[in-house]
């Protein structure tokens, strides 16, 4: 498991390669790349700042990955989340999951993102033409996370 909360950019190709390069048992790697958009809730976004809770954020991400590992047979997981100032088109989050077959990798990747959205302490603040604003949590994120609880 690799968990990283960092200001620096990351290299998706290098991260995906690292998950299967030395492990011939890996038959699938599913990855999700979250990217900063230039529009949210009808307003243009110039820049964004990501705040987090150092210590708890890493701990929460690790717990989410451990939970995924109890549900699916996984051969490697990488979660990288950027913090600090970000601009539209900047990659913000990467979740990559390796497994023997695609279904486990797809499902675990989605599960980790859904849980990250509701349980990992990150907060987005946007700079828009109307000024700065904290992004509000979306009900749909809570709904997405809840569907895994059945």
């Amino acid at each position: 498991m690799k968990i990283s909360v960092q200001t620096e950019p990351f290299d998706l190709n290098a991260e995906v390669a690292a998950l299967h390069r030395d492990n011939p048992a890996v038959g699938a790697v599913a990855s999700f790349l979250g990217v900063t958009r230039d529009v949210n809730a009808g307003l243009g976004v110039h820049t964004m700042t990501l705040e987090h809770y150092p210590g708890m954020t890493e701990r929460a991400l690790e717990q989410i990955v451990r939970e995924a590992e109890t549900r699916w047979h996984l051969l490697g997981v990488t979660v990288i989340h950027r913090v600090g100032p970000l601009c539209p088109t900047d990659p913000i989050v990467l979740v990559a999951v390796a497994s023997a077959h695609r279904q486990e990798a797809f499902q675990a990747c989605e599960f980790i993102m859904d849980y990250l959205k509701t349980r990992a302490p990150f907060w987005k603040k946007e700079v828009t033409p109307a000024g700065e604003r904290w992004v509000d949590a979306r009900d749909s994120d809570g709904t997405a996370a809840e569907r895994w609880q059945t």
Binding site: G34, L50, H52, Y53, M56, H81, I92, V93, M113, L116, K117, T118, R119, A120, P121, F122, W123, K124, W134, V135, D136, A137, D141
Partner: peptide, 10 residues
């Protein structure tokens, strides 16, 4: 003890 708004990462 930490108090914070609902999270908005990802």
């Amino acid at each position: 003890v930490a108090i914070f708004p609902p999270v908005t990462g990802g």
